[in-house]
Amino acid sequence: MKRAQVKMGETIAILFIFFVLILFGLIFYFQFQKSSFERQKVELFSEQSISKSLVASFLPELICSRNVAATVKNCIDLKKLEFASEEMKDNREYYFDIFGFAVITVEEIYPGNGTWVLYNQTPPEITREINTPIPVSLFNPVENTYSFGALNVEVYT
């Protein structure tokens, strides 16, 4: 009887150690998964930030009006810009679906120094932010002149 009990004890001990080793393996694996997941989150956020910047720079609400003769790329119409920010405020939900938590500003660099806030939705707590500046021409349709500026897209999470 004693021999049997000893043998049973041995078996249980082996099993116990086996499961402890498995547990260590699983803990190590899940830690690795967690860090991989964090890395993917950062990559995803960077991709989303680039997407939103591209969308902002191609918004029909901002881009220079075209006639049959000419098309100007990376150009923002200043007259549209004035009213686009009003419309974005009035249609907050619609533009939130496009940009999420972000701040989009247009900054004139030369020759003037104006700044226009186009869209402003910041989250209650900021975990991460990426700012993507895009050089643009700013067109004044009344004076028919161009100035140099930047479209700043700050995306938050």
């Binding site: 609400e61 009213f83 249609n91 619609y94």
Partner: peptide, 25 residues
């Protein structure tokens, strides 16, 4: 159509603002 609604407003206000600026100049 939602985009059309927003753009119509922007273009309408834009042309009005351009006219006002021209008259000022």
């Amino acid at each position: 159509l939602k985009r059309l609604e927003i753009l119509s407003k922007i273009y309408g206000k834009r042309i009005k603002a351009i006219q006002d600026d021209y008259f000022l100049i």
